[in-house]
């Protein structure tokens, strides 16, 4: 591929304009799913084509781009998407959360609080929070327009009746500015509180499902719950084995075949920054 054969950030300007319009509409109506004419991208649906299109539409040559998958900069798909934009947009890249102006993510929100001027782009597989309660798009759109979210509350109630807890641990539904129920993408519910009142712009792209939605800075985002069963952000109850952090989301790593495991930060940048500052967990070298 001669990279000069493609426009800046791969997509042609007309397409980017179409996507930017959808983004602006999404920012104007927080939590509302805006249909957009998603394009076939050179990576498969399910690999983040929605996020890639949103990133392509918002990137400028001066941006510094970071990509994480499961919180990590070095997972194969994060590497692949980062190199895609290095090739087609020539933008600078970074793994440091605070240095990035645009961050594309799959399944996590960075541990370090985001700042004004940053854009967080989420890859979304199923944008419709009501999809598994009602498979029909024509029906779910009607439910959103009528603000008819009873079905969702019934589902959460049934969880409590059956398990004593709401049995949703990721892609936990939220309500935006008291209006739209929104799927925050499959982030663990540990990350849900970071969605709210965030100084950065948060954009959600679902390529295969052809939807874009957004949270403008400082938006009110409330995880659905009940007064007597309040929402609880949960994490594994351990410190990070490498950096000792007790406030980060942890991955469980199996270390041998005799039940040995350890817990480490899923956000690699957070963990490395802490280690560089001298923090040590009990499994650190």
């Amino acid at each position: 591929m001669t990279d000069q054969a493609y426009n800046f950030a791969y997509l042609d300007e007309q397409t980017k304009r179409m996507i930017r319009r959808a983004i602006l509409k999404g920012l104007a109506i927080p939590g509302y799913q805006v249909p957009f004419a998603s394009r076939e991208m050179p990576m498969p649906y399910g690999w983040g084509t929605g996020g890639v299109q949103v990133s392509a539409a918002v990137l400028t040559p001066d941006d510094r781009f970071k990509v994480i998958d499961q919180g990590a900069d070095d997972t194969t798909n994060a590497v692949s998407i980062r190199s895609f934009f290095e090739r087609t947009a020539g933008v600078a890249t970074t793994t440091v959360t605070t240095e990035a102006t645009v961050i594309q993510t799959r399944h996590r929100i960075p541990e370090v609080p985001l700042a004004e001027g940053q854009i967080l782009v989420y890859q979304v597989p199923i944008p419709e929070p009501l999809r598994f309660l009602e498979p029909r798009e024509s029906e779910t759109r009607k439910m959103h327009s009528l603000e008819e979210y009873g079905l969702m509350h019934v589902k959460l109630y049934e969880d409590i009746a059956r398990h004593g807890h709401i049995a949703t641990s990721y892609a936990y539904p939220v309500k935006v500015e008291g209006r739209y129920v929104m799927d925050p993408s499959p982030i663990p519910k540990f990350d849900n509180p970071k969605l709210a009142d965030c100084p950065a712009i948060q954009l959600f792209g679902a390529g295969r499902e052809q939807r874009i939605y957004a949270l403008p800075p400082y938006t009110q985002v409330v995880s659905l719950d009940f007064e007597d069963h309040p929402f609880e952000a949960s994490r594994a109850d351990h410190p990070c084995g490498l950096c000792g952090a007790v406030d980060s989301y942890l991955d469980e790593v199996i270390t041998d075949d005799a039940g040995g495991r350890m817990f480490v930060c899923s956000d690699t940048d957070y963990c490395e920054t802490r280690q560089a500052a001298g923090h040590r967990g009990k499994d650190a070298a």
Partner: peptide, 25 residues
């Protein structure tokens, strides 16, 4: 095929949260 095959991408963050939930239950 894209959506079907994407389930082979890493999902350990979500899986971890499910692990925690199932252990708790």
């Amino acid at each position: 095929t894209g959506f079907l095959e994407h389930i082979k991408l890493p999902h350990y963050v979500d899986f971890q949260s499910e692990l925690e939930l199932v252990r708790k239950l």
